[in-house]
Structures are given as C-alpha cells and as structure tokens.
C-alpha cells in the first residue's frame, strides 16, 4: 500500500517539478486526514499542485476562487424555491465535494472564511436548520498569498489552527526553471493526469496511518516539545493539544510514506515545521521557521534526566 502512495508522490512530482519534499508533505497531510494550507506568492505552482493531488487520487473536486465580495452561500449552497414543485430545495455549494481547492482564501471576508473553516472542522454543513454531512473523504487545500499583499484578510490564529500543515513552495532551482520553461503548460498537464490511486485505497492508507506505532519514548518527546513551546518563553503562546495530536498524526503519516510501521524522532522533526509554524508566533520576533528550528534544537530527543 505504501508503495502505491509513493507512486502517487512520484506522479505528482513529474508535474510539479523539483518540489518532492513539499509533495510528500502534502500527501502525508492528506492521509493524516488534515487540511492543507499552501502559502506563497502568486504563480509559484500552488494551484497546479492542488490540481495534481486531486487528479492523482481520482478525487471528486471543485475549485473556488475566493474574492472579497464572496458570501458564505457561494460556498455552502443556497435554498431556492422550485415553482413547479412548490417547495424549497437546496442547491449545494462547491463545498459538497471530496477535495475543495480554496484558492486565495485570504481574499475573502472573515465571514466567508469562517463558513468554510467551520465546515472543515465539523465535516458537516448546517443550512436552514438542516445538517448535511460532507462526503468522505473531505479535504480542503487552501492557497493564500502572504499577508503583505494588498487587499487580503489574514486568517486569525484560531482558524489557522484548523489546518494540519502549512507549506510553501518557493522559487524553483535553476535547472527546474529551465525544464519548466522548455515544457508545456503545467496546469494542462495536471488536469490531464491519470489517477494512480482509487479513493478506496486512499481511505485504506488513511486507516493505516492510525496503526503506525508510536512508542512511549516518542510520545514523551512530543510531550516535551509541547511543554517547551509553552514554558520556554520562545513563543507568545504555546502549542495547543490539538497541535500536539496533529503533530503525532502527521509524523505517523510521514513514517508510513517512508515505509515504516513506527514513528521515529526524525519523522517528528520533519513534520514539526509545517505542522507548527503557522500556529506559533515567536516572542522575540523572527520568522516562524526560525522559531521552530529553535524549538527543535533546544529539546533533547531522548530524555536526559
């Protein structure tokens, strides 16, 4: 099974060039049942990556381009009156899908963001007093521009917390850049990709993630990381228990991708940045990445006393 997942990673890599690490993280995030936030400047391949992921797992997906005049109904759906049958019926919004691409989520107003984020957490939508469950699996891959861009509504911490991981792609290397320029349009390539994995297999690997062994020593390491984030004074606010659970789940998924049935501290260290960077604010200034690196370096992997 792990092999199939690895093939999926390879397939996506053939479209999104030179970003194998990020792709693995994205896949790990999905099989850990987490939502993914891709943050980067426009034109870095965020949407292409999202398309490719949807295609490769043959997921039913919709894409929503967020704008500042969008309303919650534009995402969740709306009740319309059917004059023939003389009753209201729900026209489902784009959220009723297996994979939702929320492009440039920080361009929408907080109200609309809130509607989506609630659906992400509860995996259900309540419309006109009627609760509807979202399809299974349900992923949100949101992309956003860095908040320094004009005309954006930054996501508040509480909503950032709903995303299991945040990754950014970054500029391609020189070689990748040349390859990119020589090849055909990446977006078209992504859209024409063949599925590698069925939904059932994806669900199976999600179930497998839960079974990856996390030893007491490893749990202890994660606990000490959490405690250090709260007590060291490195951050204005420490990591929440939800972040801790997410970290363990992400590490399990990463271990599974690496072909192991147990989690090692290295797995934790790899996913720590993507899982926690967007939840932490360094108290001494400095970027979130440098804060998590500091966290990693100051917590001993093995208890010393």
């Amino acid at each position: 099974m792990a092999v199939a997942i690895v093939r999926a990673v390879e397939a996506v890599s053939s479209v999104v060039l030179g970003k194998e690490e990020q792709i693995r993280l994205a896949v790990a995030c999905m099989i850990a049942r987490g939502h993914l936030l891709i943050e980067d400047l426009p034109g870095m391949g965020k949407t292409t990556l999202a398309h490719a992921l949807a295609k490769v797992f043959s997921l039913d997906y919709r894409r929503v381009q967020f704008t500042s005049d969008m309303l919650p109904a534009d995402i969740l759906g709306v009740s319309v009156f059917d004059p023939e049958r003389r009753e209201f019926h729900l026209r489902q919004g784009p959220v009723f899908t297996q994979l939702l691409l929320a492009d440039e989520i920080n361009r929408a107003t907080p109200k609309t963001q809130g509607a989506l984020l609630e659906a992400m957490e509860e995996r259900q939508v309540t419309l006109d007093g009627e609760t509807r469950t979202l399809p299974e699996p349900f992923f949100v891959i949101a992309t956003q521009n860095p908040i320094t861009q004009a005309g954006t509504f930054p996501l508040p911490e509480s909503q950032l917390d709903r995303f299991l991981m945040r990754i950014s792609l970054g500029y391609p290397s020189a070689e990748t850049e040349r390859e990119l320029l020589a090849g055909s349009d990446r977006r078209d390539q992504a859209l024409s990709m063949k599925p590698v994995l069925g939904v059932a297999e994806l669900m199976q690997s999600m179930a497998q993630v839960e079974k990856v062994h996390a030893s007491p020593d490893l749990i202890d390491y994660i606990q000490r990381l959490m405690a250090h984030s709260r007590n060291s004074g490195l951050f204005t606010a420490g990591l929440s228990p939800r972040a801790g659970l997410g970290l363990l789940r992400a590490a399990r998924a990463w271990a599974l991708l690496a072909g192991n049935d147990y989690v090692t501290p290295e797995d934790v260290q790899v996913v720590l940045g993507p899982v926690t960077a967007h939840r932490l604010q360094g108290s001494a200034g400095g970027g979130p990445e440098s804060s998590t690196r500091q966290l990693l370096e100051s917590v001993p992997v093995v208890r010393r006393h």
Binding site: T264, P265, E266, Q269, E297, S298, V299, P300, V301
Partner: peptide, 9 residues
C-alpha cells in the same frame, strides 16, 4: 551535535 540531534542525526 545540538540538544535536538536525533539518533539518525
């Protein structure tokens, strides 16, 4: 080595 070096590290 730093404090946080893992066994693989």
């Amino acid at each position: 080595l730093t404090q946080g070096t893992s066994p693989q590290g």
